[in-house]
Design a binder for these strands. Structure first.
Length: 423
RNA sequence: AGAGGGGUGUCCGAGUGGUUUAAGGAGCACGCUUGGAAAGCGUGUGUAGGUCUCAAGCUUACCGAGGGUUCGAAUCCCUUCCCCUCUACCA
């Protein structure tokens, strides 16, 4: 969430930024917000000055009562009783004005960083770099949805039976490959200083608001019927919300956390072409890295996180590219996002396997996540990224490494899997 | 899940309608003291909003959260969340 003081002081920058993110009527909205805030302030002032009078009178009544001057006290009481209505009325009006302002404010996305390219769709994302080369594929190379059947390692039919579409069952070497990747990714993160967290995978409404999933995107999450809790769409939500309503000691920054969780996404209405097999699921495993920084170090951290993710892909020997997302393709809360895509040899296309973002103060403002610098409390910057999401990595590994003696496991994973081939 | 007891500042903890302007202690910061340290002494020590060019000052709200009663609420009432004890259940 953007802050009102920022918008007031930088209304032109705000309008330009919102336009880059393709918010319609950006200029009108900013004008409305400032007007609503003016109204809020003026009502608040009226309420507070009435309150002040009433507080002073209440104190006088107290003193009079104690010294036994009942008649004087009664007179005062009648006087202040009349104020009650005004106070309540002004307070309610101020609260209503604030709510109106917040309701509008929470619908605004974060402003993009200056390096974010203009553009509306994924085609306009900027390719930052490409690593490796196209895997040499045989003419009869099979897509992963055929390979998983051939080797009987991931079973969609069984998932359909026990749950529904998009909930595959991993079996035998399929399950072991999953476990190997999870441990590999966690170990690599711990090696470079991340602290491992195992958070709950159900979260409450406040947490959903803190990281920006609510109030807008509840349609993407599964909800429990009795308690109204949400199944997490990403570990970003619980791990970042650990710091909700926290003033972090400056000495503890930066904070670097990593966690593995299953992720649940309803993906309502997004099924169709290009989502076969492992390409899009309702439940999948992901290792998430989350960092909390002082503003001046957050962009350096973003680059480090990007390099960390790239290191994982290089160790797995996957041909990948890095994209800088354009204004129209970026997430709601992000100021700058890099997507990492791996080449899928049999599908002949790029698959997104990671998204690394700096949210600057956007989440921190919702979370009330602050630190103190020279005695003043300031909002922290939050960042996160997938390192990595499993299904598409598995898809690419299966497709790119298929051969006559089965699917070859990358060397670095063999100590984790305990086998060299799936055959 | 049932019965009972709780939730107060960074922490411990007092406070059952009006000098509470949240006592007292610990911690922390700064200063004095010291060869240095400890002890001791002194001062300070939350968050958010408003006012203000800045600062100071003034002011409003905040005692788990939300609402109510009252001239006045940490204190009384209602709702709700969380913790503890016992019982029940359970990996």
């Amino acid at each position: 969430m953007l802050t009102i003081p920022f918008i007031r002081a930088n209304s032109e920058i705000t309008i330009q930024g919102l336009r880059k993110k393709h918010v319609a009527n950006a200029s009108d909205i900013v004008g409305q917000l400032i007007a609503m805030d003016d109204q809020r302030k003026s009502l608040l002032q009226q309420a507070e000055s009435a309150l002040e009078i009433s507080n002073v009178a209440a104190k006088e009544i107290g003193t009079l009562m104690q010294s036994g001057q009942k008649e004087l006290a009664e007179g005062k009481r009648a006087e202040t009783a009349a104020l009650k209505g005004t106070i309540k009325e002004k307070e309610e009006a101020a609260k209503a004005a604030e709510k109106q302002m917040l309701d509008l404010l929470v619908t605004l996305p974060n402003l993009p960083h200056s390096s974010v390219p203009e553009g509306k769709t994924a085609e306009e994302n900027e390719v930052v770099l490409t690593w490796g080369s196209l895997p040499k594929m045989e003419a009869d190379a099979q897509p992963h949805w055929d390979l998983i059947k051939k080797y009987d390692i991931i079973d969609f039919d069984l998932g359909n039976k026990i749950t529904g579409a998009g909930f595959p069952v991993y079996k035998g070497k399929g399950a072991r490959l999953q476990r190997a990747l999870i441990n590999f990714f966690l170990d690599e993160a711990i090696k470079v200083g991340y602290y491992e967290i195992q958070p709950p995978i159900l979260i409450n409404e406040d947490s959903g608001f803190g990281t920006g999933q609510l109030p807008d995107k509840e349609g993407q999450m599964y909800v429990t019927k009795e308690e109204g809790l949400f199944l997490i769409p990403t570990a970003e939500v619980p791990i970042t919300n650990l710091y909700r309503d926290v003033i972090v000691n400056e000495k503890e920054l930066p904070i670097k956390n990593v966690g593995h969780t299953p992720c649940f996404r309803r993906e309502a209405g997004s099924w169709g072409a290009h989502v076969r097999g492992l390409n899009r699921l309702h439940q999948f495993d992901k290792i998430e890295i989350v960092q909390i920084h002082k503003p001046e170090t957050s962009y350096q951290a973003l680059e480090e996180m990007s390099l960390h993710v790239q290191g994982l892909l290089q160790k797995l020997n996957l041909h990948y590219r890095v994209l800088r997302l354009c204004g129209g393709d970026m997430g709601f809360a992000s100021a700058l996002t890099y997507d990492m895509e791996v080449w899928s040899g049999a599908q002949n296309r790029w698959l997104e396997v990671s998204s690394v973002s700096n949210f600057e103060t956007f989440q921190a403002n919702r979370l009330k996540l602050r630190t103190k610098v020279e005695g003043k409390s300031i909002l922290c910057h939050t960042l996160n990224g997938s390192a990595l999401a499993l299904p598409r990595i598995v898809a690419a590994l299966l497709e790119n490494n298929q051969g006559p003696d089965g699917i070859k496991i990358p060397e670095i994973l063999v100590p984790y899997t305990g086998f060299t081939h799936i055959n």
